[in-house]
């Protein structure tokens, strides 16, 4: 189970169907912890850390491999192959919605259907396409990252961010939540916010749930419209929710939407 170990992959629950959760840019698989208990009695749920995030083995972070989302897509394929899983439901949050789309195109045998939570095929406005941001905003984001890590080494960075508390949440989190090696965080920000996967999304043949929040500062409503116009087999569900992380802020509503989609599928 080398690949699974490398990505700190964990399995929860039991069930006939397999649901794989891929976290987005900025955090790690702990993002799903309020969400998983709501589905664990009906699905076998696998979550893992993207290479470079959370508990993944950073020694495998190869800038060239992860210069595009293909590297992350190949990782997910390797995890599924190693676990001998086929026909899984792949759920990706934010940038990972594009990663699961790439997997669906590369290895359709692995994918039953897709769930895209707050997806955006391209964050930067281009012609008629509304991505929500200008290139300058993204450059500014990189500066914000610098300001918050101050270019310090990864050993020092955690001191800048919060320390875990709230034992009420049940699980003790590591200090590494939402921490990353500053260089990797910067690189992944580049890959995430400068990528354009509109072409890949159009090719996805599998049934797909596009889950949007009504008031998402990162993904404007126009992106949902674009997905509906350009994807062949997608349903759009807009949650009456705020923010970019409905599985954290509105876990019950998010789980219900996912459940409705999967039971119809």
């Amino acid at each position: 189970m080398q690949v699974c170990q490398r990505h700190a992959a964990t399995t929860y629950g039991t069930g006939h169907r397999v649901l794989v959760l891929a976290h987005g840019y900025g955090c790690d698989k702990n993002m799903w912890q309020r969400f998983i208990p709501l589905l664990a009695d009906r699905y076998r749920i696998i979550c893992y850390d993207l290479m470079g995030c959370g508990g993944s083995d950073l020694s495998y972070y190869d800038r060239k491999r992860y210069d595009t989302l293909d590297g992350h897509a190949d990782d997910l394929i390797a995890i599924l192959d190693e676990m001998g899983i086929q026909n899984a439901v792949l759920a990706g949050h934010s940038v990972s919605a594009m990663t699961v789309a790439l997997v669906a195109n590369k290895r359709p045998d692995l994918v039953e259907s897709l769930v895209m939570i707050c997806p955006s095929p391209s964050f930067i406005n281009a012609g008629d396409y509304v991505g929500g941001f200008e290139r300058a905003d993204i450059d500014n984001l990189l500066e914000t990252l610098d300001a918050n890590y101050l270019g310090w080494s990864s050993e020092m960075a955690p001191a800048i961010m919060g320390t875990p508390h709230m034992p009420e949440m049940g699980e003790t989190l590591t200090n590494s939540f939402c921490q990353a090696d500053p260089d990797i965080a910067r690189h992944f920000a580049h890959v995430t916010f400068l990528a354009d996967h509109r072409h890949d999304v159009k090719k996805v043949p599998q049934k797909t749930l596009v889950l949007q929040c009504r008031d998402d500062v990162i993904v404007p409503p126009e992106v949902g419209d674009w997905m509906m116009t350009n994807m062949t087999n997608a349903d759009l569900v807009v949650l009456d929710a705020m923010g970019h992380c409905p599985h954290i802020s509105y876990p019950a509503e998010t789980a219900a939407a996912l459940e409705a989609f999967l039971s119809a599928a």
């Binding site: 500014n140 984001l141 939540f177 990162i218 992380c245």
Partner: peptide, 20 residues
């Protein structure tokens, strides 16, 4: 705009999961 992205990708998850 950059702060919004940072808030949604880092800070909201931290506030919600870690509380601080």
């Amino acid at each position: 705009p950059a702060g919004r992205i940072y808030f949604e990708t880092h800070l909201r998850p931290m506030l919600m999961i870690e509380g601080v």
